[in-house]
C-alpha cells in the first residue's frame, strides 16, 4: 500500500493544521522531521507521495529532488519550488505566458540598476530574488535612496548582485491572496494593511473575497505558467485589472482557512495529495 510522508522542519500553524486534517480524514501518514531524517534509511516505494513542508526553500528543493529521483511523487514538484522560489524566474514565466504583472527590470550591475530604476520611474520596489514574508523589500522613492540601497546590496553576497526592480503599484491598501489546489482556485482573501507591505506575516488583516470568473480565468493562466499542485498567488487590483505580483510554491495558509473563507484548505489539500498516491 502506498504511503504519505509529510516532511517538515518547523511545526508551523500550517503543519499542525495538515496533521489535524489527516487525522480527521483518517488518512494514514508518517510525519518526518527533516532534522532527523536519513533518506537512505526511509522505506519509500514508487507510488508513495511526499508532502514537502520544510521551512527552508533550499532544504525543501533538495529533499524533493532526492525523492523524485526515487520515483516518489512530491508536492510540490522541485521544479515548481525552484520556479516560485526565485522571483525573477517567476516573473519570466509569467511574462512568457502573457500574464499581467507589475512592470519590472532585472539589472546585472549596480550602475545599470540605477538606470533601470530611473527608467521605471519612482517609486520602485527592490526585491531579493529569493526571500519571503516581505523580507528585504525596499520601496525606493528617489535616486539617492536607490544608490544607497544598491551600495548596501553590493556587500550582501552574490545572490544580491542580480537586481530585481518592480514598478511600485498603488494597490489601495490591500493585495489578494488566492490559494490553488490541483490548479483550481479555492479561496481568496484580501490582505489589508496601512503599510505598503500587506503580507499577513507582517501583520496584514485578512478578509474573504469572492472569486469571480475574470479572476478565475487569470488564475488558470497562472497555473498553466507555473504548474504545481499547491500554490498561493498574490495579486494587485488596479484600474487596468489584476496584476500578478508573486506566486508562492510552499504556501502558508493560516489566514485563508475556514474561519475567514469558509474553505477547509488543509482538508481539501490532504485529500488531493492522498489521491495522488499510486
Amino acid at each position: 500500500m502506498s504511503s504519505l510522508k509529510v516532511f517538515y522542519s518547523r511545526l508551523r500553524t500550517e503543519e499542525k493544521l495538515i496533521f489535524e486534517a489527516l487525522e480527521r480524514k483518517g488518512i494514514p501518514y508518517d510525519p518526518m522531521n527533516i532534522r532527523n531524517v536519513d533518506l537512505s534509511d526511509i522505506p519509500l516505494e514508487p507510488g508513495d507521495v511526499a508532502l514537502c513542508r520544510c521551512l527552508s526553500q533550499t532544504q525543501n528543493v533538495a529533499l524533493a529532488e532526492i525523492l523524485e529521483s526515487r520515483g516518489i511523487r512530491t508536492v510540490n514538484h522541485s521544479s515548481v519550488m525552484l520556479l516560485c522560489g526565485d522571483k525573477i524566474a517567476t516573473a519570466a514565466a509569467l511574462e512568457h505566458y502573457g500574464i499581467p504583472q507589475p512592470e519590472y527590470r532585472v539589472a546585472f550591475s549596480p550602475e545599470k540598476a540605477v538606470v533601470m530604476a530611473e527608467e521605471l520611474g519612482y517609486p520602485v520596489v527592490f526585491k531579493p530574488a529569493v526571500g519571503s514574508w516581505g523580507r528585504l523589500l525596499a520601496k525606493i522613492n528617489d535616486r539617492e535612496a536607490a544608490e544607497a540601497l544598491i551600495e548596501h546590496k553590493s556587500h550582501m553576497g552574490a545572490q544580491h548582485q542580480v537586481f530585481f526592480i518592480q514598478k511600485y503599484v498603488e494597490k489601495g491598501g490591500f493585495d489578494l491572496r488566492v490559494t490553488l489546489i490541483g490548479g483550481e482556485p479555492l479561496s481568496a482573501i484580501q490582505r489589508w494593511s496601512d503599510h505598503w507591505i500587506t503580507n499577513t506575516a507582517r501583520g496584514g488583516k485578512a478578509l474573504a473575497y469572492p472569486l469571480d470568473p475574470e479572476l478565475r480565468k487569470l488564475l488558470y493562466k497562472v497555473h498553466d505558467a507555473i504548474k504545481g499542485d499547491f500554490l498561493a498567488v498574490d495579486l494587485f487590483q488596479t484600474h487596468d485589472g489584476w496584476l500578478v505580483n508573486e506566486v508562492n510554491g510552499q504556501p502558508e495558509f493560516r489566514s485563508s482557512v475556514n474561519s475567514v473563507t469558509g474553505v477547509d484548505i488543509p482538508g481539501i489539500m490532504v485529500q488531493y495529495v492522498w489521491k495522488l498516491a499510486g
Binding site: 521551512l55 527552508s56 526553500q57 533550499t58 522560489g85 531579493p128 529569493v130 526571500g131 519571503s132 514574508w133 523580507r135 545572490q159 506575516a201 498561493a232 508562492n248 510554491g249 510552499q250 504556501p251 502558508e252
Partner: peptide, 8 residues
Amino acid sequence: EVQEDWGE
C-alpha cells in the same frame, strides 16, 4: 533566527 530562504 529566521534564515534568508525561509518561508513560502
